[in-house]
Protein backbone atom coordinates (compact mmCIF):
# COMPACT_ATOMS: atom_id res chain seq x y z
CA UNK A 1 0.00 0.00 0.00
CA UNK A 2 1.43 3.34 -0.94
CA UNK A 3 2.23 5.73 1.89
CA UNK A 4 -0.07 8.31 0.42
CA UNK A 5 -2.92 5.79 0.43
CA UNK A 6 -2.20 5.02 4.09
CA UNK A 7 -2.41 8.71 4.92
CA UNK A 8 -5.71 8.98 3.16
CA UNK A 9 -7.02 5.90 4.96
CA UNK A 10 -5.87 7.27 8.32
CA UNK A 11 -7.53 10.60 7.66
CA UNK A 12 -10.73 8.85 6.61
CA UNK A 13 -10.73 6.74 9.78
CA UNK A 14 -10.14 9.80 11.92
CA UNK A 15 -12.96 11.63 10.20
CA UNK A 16 -15.24 8.66 10.70
CA UNK A 17 -14.34 8.44 14.39
CA UNK A 18 -14.94 12.17 14.89
CA UNK A 19 -18.16 11.90 12.99
CA UNK A 20 -19.31 9.05 15.18
CA UNK A 21 -18.55 11.09 18.30
CA UNK A 22 -20.58 13.92 16.90
CA UNK A 23 -23.45 11.56 16.17
CA UNK A 24 -23.71 10.49 19.78
CA UNK A 25 -23.68 14.05 20.99
CA UNK A 26 -26.39 14.93 18.55
CA UNK A 27 -28.42 11.75 18.77
CA UNK A 28 -32.12 12.46 18.49
CA UNK A 29 -34.77 10.17 19.83
CA UNK A 30 -38.25 11.01 18.74
CA UNK A 31 -40.60 8.18 19.49
CA UNK A 32 -40.12 7.38 23.19
CA UNK A 33 -40.34 4.04 24.85
CA UNK A 34 -43.71 3.39 26.40
CA UNK A 35 -43.95 5.20 29.69
CA UNK A 36 -42.62 3.46 32.74
CA UNK A 37 -39.43 2.18 31.21
CA UNK A 38 -37.55 5.40 31.74
CA UNK A 39 -39.12 6.44 35.02
CA UNK A 40 -37.09 6.05 38.19
CA UNK A 41 -38.61 3.78 40.78
CA UNK A 42 -37.80 6.17 43.55
CA UNK A 43 -35.47 9.06 44.18
CA UNK A 44 -33.75 9.23 47.54
CA UNK A 45 -33.63 12.81 48.77
CA UNK A 46 -31.80 12.29 52.08
CA UNK A 47 -28.13 11.35 52.12
CA UNK A 48 -28.70 9.52 55.40
CA UNK A 49 -29.60 5.84 55.24
CA UNK A 50 -30.20 3.88 58.43
CA UNK A 51 -28.29 0.66 58.88
CA UNK A 52 -25.11 -0.47 57.16
CA UNK A 53 -23.85 1.70 54.32
CA UNK A 54 -24.89 0.88 50.80
CA UNK A 55 -23.73 2.34 47.52
CA UNK A 56 -25.85 5.16 46.20
CA UNK A 57 -27.92 3.94 43.28
CA UNK A 58 -26.69 5.24 39.96
CA UNK A 59 -29.67 7.05 38.53
CA UNK A 60 -30.57 7.13 34.87
CA UNK A 61 -30.03 10.32 32.91
CA UNK A 62 -31.13 9.69 29.33
CA UNK A 63 -30.12 13.11 28.03
CA UNK A 64 -27.16 13.80 30.31
CA UNK A 65 -24.61 14.25 27.54
CA UNK A 66 -26.97 14.89 24.68
CA UNK A 67 -26.89 18.38 23.22
CA UNK A 68 -30.18 17.99 21.42
CA UNK A 69 -31.95 16.79 24.57
CA UNK A 70 -30.52 19.68 26.59
CA UNK A 71 -31.58 22.08 23.87
CA UNK A 72 -35.11 20.70 23.94
CA UNK A 73 -35.07 21.07 27.73
CA UNK A 74 -34.03 24.69 27.35
CA UNK A 75 -37.02 25.34 25.11
CA UNK A 76 -39.43 23.53 27.43
CA UNK A 77 -38.06 25.49 30.40
CA UNK A 78 -39.70 28.53 28.82
CA UNK A 79 -42.75 26.76 27.41
CA UNK A 80 -43.80 25.44 30.80
CA UNK A 81 -43.02 28.73 32.59
CA UNK A 82 -40.16 27.27 34.63
CA UNK A 83 -38.34 30.51 33.87
CA UNK A 84 -41.15 32.47 35.52
CA UNK A 85 -39.96 31.29 38.94
CA UNK A 86 -36.39 30.19 38.40
CA UNK A 87 -35.50 32.99 35.93
CA UNK A 88 -32.64 31.93 33.71
CA UNK A 89 -31.13 29.95 36.55
CA UNK A 90 -30.81 32.69 39.14
CA UNK A 91 -34.20 32.15 40.74
CA UNK A 92 -36.91 34.47 41.95
CA UNK A 93 -40.16 33.01 43.23
CA UNK A 94 -38.31 29.70 43.13
CA UNK A 95 -34.77 28.85 44.21
CA UNK A 96 -31.80 29.42 41.93
CA UNK A 97 -30.73 26.44 39.81
CA UNK A 98 -27.31 27.60 38.69
CA UNK A 99 -25.65 27.54 42.10
CA UNK A 100 -24.21 24.59 43.98
CA UNK A 101 -27.08 24.29 46.46
CA UNK A 102 -29.87 21.77 46.03
CA UNK A 103 -32.76 21.68 48.48
CA UNK A 104 -34.05 18.31 47.33
CA UNK A 105 -30.93 16.88 45.72
CA UNK A 106 -29.15 17.54 42.47
CA UNK A 107 -28.80 14.01 41.05
CA UNK A 108 -30.80 13.45 37.86
CA UNK A 109 -33.40 11.20 39.45
CA UNK A 110 -33.83 13.64 42.32
CA UNK A 111 -34.42 16.54 39.94
CA UNK A 112 -36.77 14.31 37.99
CA UNK A 113 -38.69 13.63 41.19
CA UNK A 114 -38.79 17.36 42.04
CA UNK A 115 -40.33 18.15 38.65
CA UNK A 116 -42.65 15.16 38.45
CA UNK A 117 -43.83 15.00 42.07
CA UNK A 118 -43.49 18.64 43.03
CA UNK A 119 -42.20 19.82 46.40
CA UNK A 120 -44.29 21.01 49.34
CA UNK A 121 -43.02 24.59 49.54
CA UNK A 122 -44.33 25.71 46.21
CA UNK A 123 -42.93 23.54 43.41
CA UNK A 124 -45.89 22.30 41.34
CA UNK A 125 -46.07 18.62 40.33
CA UNK A 126 -45.69 18.37 36.55
CA UNK A 127 -45.65 14.56 36.41
CA UNK A 128 -49.16 14.04 35.10
CA UNK A 129 -48.92 17.00 32.72
CA UNK A 130 -45.62 16.49 30.97
CA UNK A 131 -44.43 13.24 29.33
CA UNK A 132 -41.46 11.51 30.95
CA UNK A 133 -39.21 12.19 27.95
CA UNK A 134 -39.71 15.91 28.29
CA UNK A 135 -39.09 15.82 32.04
CA UNK A 136 -35.79 14.09 31.37
CA UNK A 137 -34.93 16.80 28.85
CA UNK A 138 -35.71 19.40 31.52
CA UNK A 139 -33.55 17.49 33.99
CA UNK A 140 -30.64 17.62 31.57
CA UNK A 141 -31.11 21.35 30.99
CA UNK A 142 -31.42 22.12 34.70
CA UNK A 143 -28.19 20.25 35.36
CA UNK A 144 -26.50 22.12 32.53
CA UNK A 145 -27.25 25.41 34.30
CA UNK A 146 -24.86 24.45 37.07
CA UNK A 147 -22.37 22.94 34.61
CA UNK A 148 -23.26 19.37 35.60
CA UNK A 149 -23.28 18.01 32.07
CA UNK A 150 -20.34 17.55 29.70
CA UNK A 151 -19.12 20.83 28.32
CA UNK A 152 -19.53 19.81 24.69
CA UNK A 153 -23.22 19.11 25.25
CA UNK A 154 -24.04 22.36 27.00
CA UNK A 155 -25.93 25.06 25.08
CA UNK A 156 -23.49 27.56 23.65
CA UNK A 157 -25.44 30.60 24.67
CA UNK A 158 -28.61 31.30 26.58
CA UNK A 159 -31.86 31.93 24.77
CA UNK A 160 -32.52 34.77 27.15
CA UNK A 161 -31.46 38.37 27.03
CA UNK A 162 -27.72 38.41 26.41
CA UNK A 163 -25.93 39.07 29.62
CA UNK A 164 -22.58 40.11 28.28
CA UNK A 165 -23.21 43.82 28.71
CA UNK A 166 -21.93 44.78 32.15
CA UNK A 167 -24.58 45.69 34.66
CA UNK A 168 -24.76 49.39 34.16
CA UNK A 169 -24.47 50.99 37.51
CA UNK A 170 -23.44 54.11 35.77
CA UNK A 171 -20.77 56.59 36.35
CA UNK A 172 -22.72 59.59 37.60
CA UNK A 173 -20.90 61.79 35.12
CA UNK A 174 -22.11 59.69 32.23
CA UNK A 175 -25.35 61.10 30.90
CA UNK A 176 -28.36 58.87 30.44
CA UNK A 177 -28.36 57.95 26.79
CA UNK A 178 -31.50 58.27 24.78
CA UNK A 179 -31.65 55.35 22.42
CA UNK A 180 -34.38 53.68 20.49
CA UNK A 181 -35.29 50.04 20.86
CA UNK A 182 -32.79 47.52 19.66
CA UNK A 183 -34.50 44.97 17.45
Amino acid sequence: MCSRCRDVARAALLALALGALGCEREERRFQPEPRGAAEPVFARVSPLVPGPPEPAPAGPNPYGGNAWGIGEGQRLFTWFNCNGCHANGGGGMGPPLMDAGWIYGGRPEQIYASIAQGRPNGMPAFGTRVPAEQIWQLVAYVRSLSANVPKDARPGRPDAMQTDAPPTIRDPREPLRERGPTP
Partner: peptide, 8 residues
Protein backbone atom coordinates in the same frame (compact mmCIF):
# COMPACT_ATOMS: atom_id res chain seq x y z
CA UNK B 1 -30.75 34.10 44.67
CA UNK B 2 -27.82 33.84 42.30
CA UNK B 3 -26.41 37.21 41.30
CA UNK B 4 -24.86 35.79 38.12
CA UNK B 5 -28.28 35.79 36.47
CA UNK B 6 -29.24 39.43 35.82
CA UNK B 7 -32.82 38.41 35.09
CA UNK B 8 -33.33 36.75 38.49
Amino acid sequence: LDVRDPTA
